[in-house]
């Protein structure tokens, strides 16, 4: 880490995209039970809402996904036929790393607001918006900038499922 690391100016083209909708799309697969159970297994979540159909029918009118799985449904496959490079989620974040000349980055804060439940078979689409970029900052990781990105999620009926707000720190070591 160094205080002498120089942070490049923010290109006008990047500033021009603040608040614009970018990368509207979907992961291309419907919400499915396997990922729900694997996620519950990963944190040993025994909530009967996700394991007992009768409870799901009673409470939510049928099976749903855990709300915090929202981002799972927009993450692209690591490989797909015809793809020429590895696909990455949260593309605005990775664009910024390159455009701002800050090759390393971490997510420092994340707010998720949950709206309509995500149901089995839903086709979730997402869209990203860059909200802000900070002045240069130095942390224990290095020198760089913070940025804030919103990801909005909708189902096939255009109902809002949730909004994730990511605060990231891009830096050089």
């Amino acid at each position: 880490m160094s205080d002498t690391v120089e942070v490049p100016e923010i290109p006008d083209a990047v500033l021009g995209r603040v608040d614009e909708v970018q990368y509207e799309g979907s992961a291309g697969f419907p919400v499915e039970q396997g990922y729900i159970w694997t996620t519950c297994a990963s944190v040993e979540n025994g909530n009967p809402l996700y394991w007992e159909p009768a409870v799901a029918n009673d409470l939510t009118g049928g099976p749903i996904a855990p709300p915090t799985m929202l981002s799972v449904w927009f993450r692209p496959h690591h490989w797909a036929p015809g793809a020429t490079e590895n696909l990455v989620p949260l593309q605005v974040h990775f664009d910024l790393k390159e455009q701002l000349g800050l090759p390393e980055a971490i997510i420092s804060e994340n707010t998720i607001t949950f709206h309509e439940p995500v149901r089995l078979g839903d086709q979730v689409t997402s869209r990203q918006r860059l909200r802000s970029i900070s002045e240069p900052k130095t942390t224990k990781l290095g020198t760089g900038r913070f940025w804030v990105i919103d990801v909005e999620y909708l189902n096939q009926d255009e109902m809002l499922l949730g909004v994730e707000t990511y605060t990231a720190f891009g830096y050089r070591r």
């Binding site: 996620t39 519950c40 990963s42 944190v43 040993e44 979540n45 025994g46 909530n47 009967p48 809402l49 409870v55 409470l59 855990p66 709300p67 915090t68 799985m69 981002s71 799972v72 971490i106 997510i107 420092s108 804060e109 994340n110 707010t111 998720i112 607001t113 949950f114």
Partner: peptide, 28 residues
């Protein structure tokens, strides 16, 4: 995302299945 799943599990272990998350802000 997995940290979020841990927090969700922690909360709904306490509330039971009728607990419905509205919002979470977490800082790493």
């Amino acid at each position: 995302p997995n940290l979020a799943a841990w927090f969700e599990r922690y909360i709904t272990d306490w509330t039971g299945p009728t607990g419905r998350l509205g919002k979470m802000t977490f800082r790493m």
